[in-house]
């Protein structure tokens, strides 16, 4: 449903944080759970920005449901693709429910206020992320895991089929990491959401994703099922790390244990 075709991208300004992509081809099938892996600066976040249409590629195109992403308006894209950033820091003291209701923005006309239907969608999203009890709480006073779940609820309220997440578990402790992982997995299974997440957590990716995209220096090194692409050689190439990768019977997925830094 979301295809990246021969995409090259370079930030126009000499922004030191801007990473370029070269001839990237990725296919995100409908209902899949795709993980983007790669070292810092490999272009994961840039690819997510391209997929969400916040920036446009200089060469190639992103195709959503058969149409290039550039042919959609900002609001049309937002109704189809929702994004969960690594962290969200509102300037003002919004309640969790207010944050979630902001997800309804692309569905409202100018001057239209959200009505009972929008509230119902927002509550559905709060309940789906287990944050219903936090609705009236100030977002700023929530814990890291609660904040991330509220932002995911806000993305769900967008009622978009595609959910893009940028390192959603990066700042969370182990318990919250597993919580977010099982939430994403259930969204994917129960709601049929197409999920793309960028992550540094190889074990999370191995446990959660049915497709992995391995990126290095703005290029795609490998693309496929975790069992096929998540190999010691790939980890070596991506991170310069020797790793022990084996199937964990109890966990039911591949586990990656870093052994040592090469060279």
């Amino acid at each position: 449903m979301l295809r990246v075709e021969h995409v090259s991208f370079e930030y126009v300004s000499s922004d030191p944080a801007g990473f370029s992509l070269r001839d990237v081809n990725v296919n995100v099938p409908r209902g899949s759970l795709t993980g983007l892996l790669g070292p810092n600066g490999c272009g994961k976040t840039t690819l997510l920005k391209l997929l969400s249409g916040v920036v446009h590629p200089q060469h190639g195109s992103i195709v959503l449901d058969g149409r290039p992403l550039t042919s959609y308006s900002r609001r049309e894209v937002a109704r189809r693709v929702a994004v969960v950033p690594q962290e969200t820091h509102p300037t003002f003291d919004y309640t969790a429910l207010e944050i979630v209701l902001m997800g309804r923005h692309p569905h409202l006309r100018p001057f239209q206020l959200e009505g009972p239907d929008d509230l119902a969608v927002a509550w559905d999203a709060l309940l789906a992320t287990g944050t219903g009890h936090l609705a009236d709480r100030s977002y700023m006073t929530l814990s890291g895991g609660e904040k991330q779940r509220v932002v995911i609820a806000s993305a769900l309220a967008q009622a978009a089929e595609v959910l893009l997440l940028d390192e959603p578990t990066a700042s969370l402790d182990l318990g919250y990491q597993l919580e977010i992982a099982s939430l994403l997995s259930s969204l994917n299974l129960d709601r049929g959401s197409t999920v793309v997440l960028a992550t540094h957590d190889l074990n999370l990716a191995a446990s959660l994703c049915d497709h992995l995209v391995l990126m290095h220096a703005g290029r795609v090194l490998a693309y496929g099922a975790p069992a096929d692409v998540l190999t010691p050689a790939a980890v070596q190439q991506l991170y310069n790390v020797e790793a022990d990768i084996r199937f964990h019977e109890q966990a039911g997925h591949l586990t990656v244990t870093p052994v040592k830094r090469s060279r």
Binding site: V54, R74, A78, T88, T91, G103, H105
Partner: peptide
């Protein structure tokens, strides 16, 4: 108020 990235991906 959530950040320009969050605003853009919600259709602003």
């Amino acid at each position: 108020s959530l950040g320009s990235g969050s605003a853009a991906t919600r259709g602003v």
